[in-house]
Simulated assay, not measured.
Amino acid sequence: MIEVKNVTKIFKTKNGELTAVDHVNLSIQKGEIFGIIGYSGAGKSTLIRLLNGLEKPTSGSVIVNGLEISSIKGKELRLARQKISMIFQHFNLLWSRTVAENIAFPLEIAGVPKEEREKRVHELIELVGLSGRADAYPSQLSGGQKQRVGIARALANNPEVLLCDEATSALDPETTDSILRLLSDINQRLGLTIVLITHEMHVIRKICHRVAVMEAGRVVEQGDVLEVFQNPQAEITKNFVMQVSDSRESKESIEHILKNYPSGKLVKLIFVGNTTERPIISYLIKEFQLDINILHGNISQTVNGSYGTLIVQLDGDSENVEKALEKLKSMNIKTEVITND
């Protein structure tokens, strides 16, 4: 659906050249929700603008559904953009227009007849959960409702791709979750390809199938969300995973136990999928006659399954401890010995 091939974008500034996107390669499949995460200045906003032709690459190519967006212009580009919609952090609504009129705006531009336009607007208002608010103005809406209008407007021309530029950053956590549920529902119902940029790993974890991590204009890591959570490689990815896995708390727990309970072996267990639901601790205690002290645990849900970590202190016969670790590995539970006795 989307191919980004060796794309670089360089801006000329008064202080010299600025490389915003640096030799990026991405392949996004039809119907998936693809997340791009990075801190401010990472280049993710520039990258998403390259996907709909708002920016042209300095080198490389951007292909969307077989059409090279990076090389077309004029009427051809305008028609292509009708199939590549975008929603924004600050909604970008027309404040003098009602909800229905905001949603109808792109249909007016496209020359859709009034009767057909009104029917489509009604469908979209129902789809995004704004029944009864058609005649309200943006000033009368909550942040979440404004973003729902933005989503409905973006869907007006039946796009094939929906770009989300920090679409939940201005919202509170509860509203963010409701908007993410709506996007996930739209993805499933319409088979819409969604590309979502954010600086929050919570957003990636909630709805994305795959993720690319950006730093200083480069993609430093990419893959299935569950795999990235399970085994982050780049330091920045580890920091993002820490946002939703309470690793800081676990670090404090480790320091505390090392100081106060120096015996035994400290082990981090990593569970993926169905292994998160097994009664592992009780099994180890019974099977290997171990004393087990649970220091920290966390389970996160992703689109592709559950990911959990558990930090424990194993105390008992050293041979039994080693047997227990081998047994865990045979059960597809990754183990990481943090310290030895």
Rank of each mutant, 00 (worst) to 15 (best):
V62N: 04
V99Y: 01
R97E: 04
V62G: 00
P57T: 10
A134H: 04
L47N: 07
L127G: 07
S40M: 06
Q147E: 07
I84Q: 03
L124Y: 08
V149T: 09
Y137S: 02
S59W: 00
Q145T: 09
I109Q: 09
G41P: 10
R78N: 13
P106E: 06
L94W: 13
G132T: 01
Q140G: 07
D135W: 02
A152E: 11
G132S: 01
L127W: 00
S131L: 14
S59T: 15
A104G: 11
K73H: 14
E126W: 01
A136F: 14
I125M: 06
L54S: 00
L47K: 07
L47H: 07
G111C: 09
Q147N: 10
L162M: 10
S131H: 11
G144I: 13
S71N: 11
P159R: 07
K44W: 07
N52T: 02
S142I: 12
I103Y: 00
G143T: 13
I63Q: 02
H90Q: 15
K119H: 11
E123T: 06
E76L: 04
Q82H: 13
W95I: 01
T46Y: 04
W95T: 11
R133S: 15
T98L: 12
G144L: 13
E108S: 04
P57I: 06
R133T: 13
R49S: 10
R78C: 08
E101S: 09
Q140M: 15
G144D: 12
P106M: 09
L93S: 05
A100Q: 08
L93P: 02
V64R: 00
D135Q: 15
E118T: 03
L79A: 13
A110W: 10
N157I: 10
K75L: 13
N102R: 05
A156D: 07
S131Y: 10
S96I: 02
L47D: 07
E126C: 05
I87K: 11
E108D: 14
E126S: 15
A156F: 06
A100P: 01
L77D: 07
L79T: 08
G150T: 06
A152L: 13
F91M: 12
E55T: 05
L107V: 10
G143R: 12
A104V: 07
F88A: 10
K73T: 14
A110T: 12
K119E: 15
I84Y: 09
L124R: 06
K146G: 04
L163R: 03
I151S: 08
L155E: 09
L79K: 14
G41D: 12
Y137W: 08
R117Q: 15
K56G: 04
R120T: 09
F88K: 14
G150C: 11
A110Q: 11
A42I: 02
G132W: 00
H122N: 13
N92W: 02
G66V: 03
R117S: 09
A154Q: 01
I72C: 03
P159Y: 01
V149M: 11
A42N: 00
L47T: 10
V112F: 01
L54G: 05
G129D: 05
G132A: 05
V128G: 06
Q89R: 08
R49N: 15
Q140I: 10
V62L: 02
K114E: 15
